[in-house]
Amino acid sequence: MMKMKALVASLLFSITISAQEFLATVTVDFSQVQGSNTQVFQTLEKSLSDFINTTKWTDNRYKIHEKIESNFLIIITGRNGNFYNGRLQIQTRRPVFNSTYYSPILNFVDSKFDFEYTEFEELIFNPRKFSNKNLTDAMAFYVYYILGMDADTFQLEGGTSHFKTAQQIATNAMGSQFGGWSEMDGNKSRGTLINNVLKPTNKTLRNIYYQYHRVGLDQMSDNESKAKNAIGNSLETLSFYQRGNYALFYPLDIFFMAKKDEIAKIFGGGMMSSVNIGEIKETLNALSPTNSSTWNNLKK
């Protein structure tokens, strides 16, 4: 009987683990902070890793191969007691069907990642209320942002519910002592980012994520030329953002930060496509001129 109970408990544990959404790695870099107590940073690293990987963030069930692989790098730049200043770099990727390749989805930095933390405290997140410490709120915001971005690559506007949860978290944090939430903090603030993601004008970019990944990359193993055409056609629709004031539209910057190297590889050789590579270059150069050396080398 005891063996049976242990087996049942083990099965329940494995089911719970497989149901979680993330395979996340958290790293805390405290090299810029003076002091002898480094244990607190190691504790923080483990606590955040457990927080992200063991929390059930959605009602969906994720199989092992469906878990979202992500890296969170927290660079601590200052400390005053239990208050910390830092930056947060986020990287995520998603698998491409019928291949061993992973496509980068996010690769960006939040430069206003400040929080309060006491070693060994339990990390609790309440989606209806700001914690007044900022740590779990900011991390949960990005968890739901990542979930939304990942879902958008598999289904047209599939991430809407996750983005709305992230928006609510940002709303809860407005007026707090911690920066990085309000639209007054600039176009890269969390509040501005998620509001822009949910704007009707961003539907074009969200649809591009779906066309690029699901209709393009996921079909590469079946028909490379057709898949490249789908990817190229999705990039052509970025021309929508040439018409209007999108110079400071952060969702576009995030797209290019993650995708510039991949786009260069896709249109750097292999099977020929029938896309209008000239128009694609023109659009990419107009929207992301800092990467012109990359765009100018693109080929069909």
Rank of each mutant, 00 (worst) to 15 (best):
F255D: 02
I280P: 08
L205G: 02
N187H: 11
N245A: 13
K228Q: 08
K188A: 05
N187W: 04
S239A: 14
L235N: 13
K281E: 10
S221R: 06
S221D: 10
V215Q: 15
G232K: 01
V275H: 06
D222C: 00
A247P: 00
K260E: 10
L252Y: 11
V197F: 13
Y246C: 11
G216P: 04
L248E: 14
F256A: 11
S221Q: 11
I254M: 15
G216E: 09
I231F: 12
N187M: 11
E279F: 05
N195D: 15
N196I: 02
S189V: 07
E224C: 05
Y250A: 09
K199F: 10
A258G: 07
Y212F: 15
Y246L: 08
I266W: 08
D222M: 11
I254W: 00
S225H: 04
F240T: 12
L252S: 08
M220Y: 07
E224A: 15
D261T: 01
K260C: 02
S189K: 06
A247I: 12
K226V: 07
K265T: 03
G268F: 03
E279W: 04
R206Y: 03
K188C: 02
A247Q: 14
I208G: 02
Q219K: 15
L205T: 02
K281P: 11
N202A: 14
D253C: 00
R243K: 14
D253V: 01
N276P: 04
A264T: 07
S273P: 05
E282Q: 15
P200C: 07
K188H: 12
L193E: 05
I263K: 05
M220W: 01
D261N: 06
S274E: 13
A247W: 04
F255R: 06
K265A: 02
N196D: 14
E282L: 07
M271P: 01
R190L: 03
K199H: 13
L205I: 04
G244L: 08
F240N: 07
D261S: 03
F256H: 04
K226E: 13
N229R: 01
I277A: 10
S239D: 12
T237M: 13
I277Q: 06
E282H: 12
R190A: 11
K199W: 05
